[in-house]
Amino acid sequence: MAAGFVLDKASILDRLGGDEEIFTMIVDMFVQDVDNSCDALAAALNSGDATVLQREAHTVKGLLATFSDDAGVAEASVVEQQAGQGLASQAEAVAGLQRRLREVAAVLSAG
């Protein structure tokens, strides 16, 4: 179980050149889109196609990296790398990743 997500706004802003406007924009988008991201992961798991799951995990990895969620990035990387070994074995990891996405969204919403 990964450590809980802690918002490090300073680090994110540092990457965005201190631009609060962009920060707010991408936080809003992430929060609004989190259900779709979780659905896409579920659909990828059910597609039976390891490549699709790899791609979705890769996308989620990029999203979480944007918010400096190193632990979430690590979880997504595991799914991305292990998807090829069989989708059934990834069900638990995908569920964990979905929980992580919602947790990050909740923390970001709380500001």
């Binding site: 050149g17 631009d19 962009i22 924009m25 991408i26 988008m29 992430f30 990029g62 999203l63 944007t66």
Partner: peptide, 16 residues
């Protein structure tokens, strides 16, 4: 980019 967030982020950076 197939990710809307990335598109938005990059667009904002390009405009800047």
């Amino acid at each position: 980019d197939d990710s809307e967030i990335n598109l938005t982020l990059i667009k904002a950076l390009v405009v800047k």
